[in-house]
């Protein structure tokens, strides 16, 4: 009689070490990221919904959140436009020192935010190299959210450039040639054939820059002036609450920001899936 049928072939690979490495990964991630993050929600849960809402409705908190979200949105929009132009120029045109310029794009990723903060303050702040002459000409109002937008535009640029760049580089010239032979004008070629392909990465870059901008602290506080209700960002208010040992206040703001961050992450992932589905692999 035949013994029990052969075991089904194991799915995936035969490589060893899954248990060990997966265990390490989960333990590390749990201890460093998940457990501490849970502390925020545990603290929030301990406070009760009424208390959270009361703290959240505090005018200064609301103002700080509004400043953070509004400036991040505006800066991300600026970055979407500037990043698209920069990516286009880098991919499509030739000019001297192109490689150098391409390397410099990542500066905001590599430069510590505190350094970026004092440098931008020294340039575009009220007494800065560029800011002072502008102020004298009456073109600059000191300590407004506009300063925050400057800092966030610096921080967010590479997100857009680096998501758009590879997609544009992969876009075969033939699509544009095909559209041109079919009678489209250059404007129609760009708007109907190129832009639909660039829109998903552009949105992804926008979302990444926005998410980063909302939470940005280091580069902002040196240039913003930090006036409550006017140019005080949410992360700074968290720091201030913590310095007052107001854990509840800090936690409320943090929870509100985390929740939006998670939403952003979800949106980014959905966008990514949508892009892949739409683009297919022709």
């Amino acid at each position: 009689m035949v013994e029990a049928t052969a075991l089904p072939a194991p799915k995936g690979t035969v490589l060893p070490g899954l248990g060990l490495t997966l265990g390490m990964t989960l333990a590390y991630l749990g201890l460093i990221v998940l457990l501490p993050l849970a502390a925020v929600f545990a603290t929030a849960a301990g406070m009760g919904l009424d208390e959270i809402l009361r703290l959240l409705m505090d005018p200064r908190t609301l103002a700080a959140l509004r400043v953070s979200f509004a400036t991040a949105l505006l800066a991300a929009a600026i970055n979407a436009v500037a990043g698209l132009v920069v990516a286009w120029v880098l991919v499509r045109y030739d000019f001297p020192l192109k490689r150098l310029v391409d390397g410099v794009i990542d500066l905001p990723f590599a430069l510590p935010t505190a350094v970026a903060g004092i440098a931008l303050a020294g340039l575009y702040g009220p007494n800065g190299w560029v800011g002072a002459p502008l102020a004298e000409a009456g073109l600059r109002v000191a300590y407004t959210p506009a300063d925050i937008v400057v800092a966030l535009a610096f921080i967010g640029l590479p997100f857009v450039v680096r998501t758009v760049e590879p997609v544009l580089a992969d876009l075969d010239r033939e699509y544009e040639e095909a559209a041109a032979t079919l009678g489209a004008s250059r404007l129609q070629v760009v708007s109907r054939v190129v832009m639909p392909v660039l829109l998903p990465p552009l949105l992804t870059g926008f979302a990444l820059a926005f998410a980063r901008g909302v939470g940005e602290y280091g580069s902002v506080i040196f240039i913003a002036g930090n006036l409550p209700y006017l140019s005080e960002v949410a992360p700074l208010l968290i720091v201030i609450k913590l310095e007052e040992y107001n854990y509840a206040g800090a936690t409320t703001i943090a929870a509100a920001m985390l929740l939006t961050s998670f939403l952003m992450l979800l949106v980014i992932n959905l966008l990514g899936n949508w892009t892949r589905r739409r683009a297919g692999h022709v």
């Binding site: 075969d172 033939e174 699509y175 040639e177 095909a178 559209a179 041109a180 032979t181 009678g183 489209a184 004008s185 054939v193 639909p196 392909v197 739409r278 683009a279 297919g280 022709v282």
Partner: peptide, 18 residues
């Protein structure tokens, strides 16, 4: 190009993916 009105079929077709 518009006035030439050539129908060009590319080797890999260059169909607009979106």
């Amino acid at each position: 190009l518009r006035d030439r009105r050539v129908g060009f079929v590319f080797q890999h077709y260059a169909l607009f993916r979106h």
